[in-house]
């Protein structure tokens, strides 16, 4: 029971500070779950994000469900997800009841302009940390550059490929590429024997 409460409380806190979309929560998850509590690893987190991207639902919720499940099974998954939802629900209930023009308040806009700067630094640092283990050879570098370009330029390009499609393609290409690499490895090993 204590473990479940701990999960709920941890994700409640994380849910209250996840400004700027699912990926912005990665640095906070890293700090709270990898460094402080050792509930998961940075590699697992990254994998949860790539799965969360191509399954239904909101990425940050999907990641919460994954971590909760890993820690305490189905109950843990529910505790983490509901915990993550609690903050946003309360905030919107308050805004809907009292603060009709919340987003247009000058003080809110200034605060958020500051927060956005912080969020892009946090994301940059997460990318720098994950880079070494994710982009390991020319193939993954090429894949990174293509998907990055398609995503970053999505406003300029005349067509838009949904992120889920990109992720699924990347998975399939990964299977094919690692298969080719294995075959090459095997045939060169055989060549060495002969």
């Amino acid at each position: 029971m204590n473990q479940l409460l701990d999960l709920y409380w941890t994700f409640l806190k994380i849910g209250c500070v996840t400004f700027g979309g699912g990926y912005a929560m990665l640095p906070i998850l890293e700090r709270e779950l990898v460094t402080k509590r050792q509930w998961t690893t940075m590699d697992d987190l990254r994998d949860y994000f790539s799965i969360g991207q191509c399954t239904p639902g909101i990425i940050s919720l999907n990641v919460s469900t994954f971590i909760g499940q890993k820690r305490c099974g189905v109950k843990g998954a529910i505790a983490a997800t509901v915990g993550f939802l609690t903050g946003p629900i309360i905030i919107i209930l308050i805004i809907a009841s009292f603060l009709k023009n919340f987003a247009t308040l000058e003080i809110v806009q200034h605060a958020f302009a500051g927060i956005r700067v912080c969020v892009c630094v946090l994301i940059l640092q997460a990318v720098l940390r994950l880079w070494k283990k994710s982009v390991i050879d020319p193939f993954t570098l090429a894949l990174y550059l293509i998907i990055f370009a398609l995503n970053a330029l999505s406003g300029v390009l005349p067509f838009k490929i949904p992120a889920a499609v990109l992720v699924i393609c990347a998975g399939i290409i990964g299977i094919i590429a690692s298969e080719i690499k294995n075959r090459k490895g095997q045939s060169s090993a055989k060549g060495g024997e002969a």
């Binding site: 990926y23 990254r46 994998d47 892009c120 894949l143 970053a152 998975g171």
Partner: peptide, 26 residues
């Protein structure tokens, strides 16, 4: 094998998300 590709894709998407925030913030 799938994760071999997914990892590169995942970090590419995180980078793009960062760029999108930076475009507004900086």
């Amino acid at each position: 094998g799938a994760f071999y590709g997914l990892r590169a894709a995942s970090i590419a998407m995180i980078s793009a998300a960062g760029i999108n925030v930076a475009k507004v913030a900086l």
